[in-house]
Amino acid sequence: MNDLSTNWNATPQAGVGRRLLTRLTGSGVWRSVFRHGWIRTNRDRALTIYSNVFLHIHPVKVRKSALPFRVTFCLGGLSLALFIVLTVTGILLMLYYHPSAPRAYEDMKDLEFVVSSGVFLRNLHRWSAHLMVITVFLHMLRVFFAGAYRPPREFNWVVGVMLLVLTLLLSFTGYLLPWDQLAYWAITVGTNMAGAVPWVGDEIRFLLLGGNTIGENTLIRFYVLHCVVLPLGIVVLMAVHFWRVRKDGGLARPL
């Protein structure tokens, strides 16, 4: 593989830098990480895209007609960007937060008053969360009005709706964690709504709360949901979502 480029790179008239690069890209370690050599040929270019997970997310080619801002309003991309911000700030917040009834509110107060840039972190997390709900929702509207839910993209619409639900659930579960009055009553209302489900409502409510009233159990449950279960789910579905965007023919346009 890559004989041509290797040969080309190895010509005696090449400089020292070039020869070092050739040595590096030809080494076993490089090859174990990247499955292609230095980008010289179209094949290398294609391989670069195919074999790199990060670059792979973005389509190889984007149609020019899909590029103008008004086509997508960048809503999907913004949602992803906000999700990344939320992940980073969320992890930093986790460093200071104890999901226990006596500590939760006090940790929040400490974030506000003594943790370096704690207010900044918390506000970034909070506002990004609000924004993400908005952008995801607008994204759905855009897709709807662009008619982009139609075949062959109907499954991706379904995935998108699931992502919207997960986003809302993340927002809801995160609401309890400050453990203040607003949180307490919001979750009381929210779980009572869950309790209104016919037949199994009370069981669902009990499951969510870990008891009959909001308490330490609820806090732990919501914490695990907010920091582990839901983010994992959303990451998996996002991967599927992006993959399907590519597979279903790129960004929205008439087929």
Partner: peptide, 17 residues
């Protein structure tokens, strides 16, 4: 008042919430 606070206004506690 709000003992954890480190600003004059928040510490003396005549703040919202």
């Amino acid at each position: 008042g709000q003992g954890r606070a480190t600003t004059t206004e928040a510490a003396h506690g005549a703040t919202k919430h």
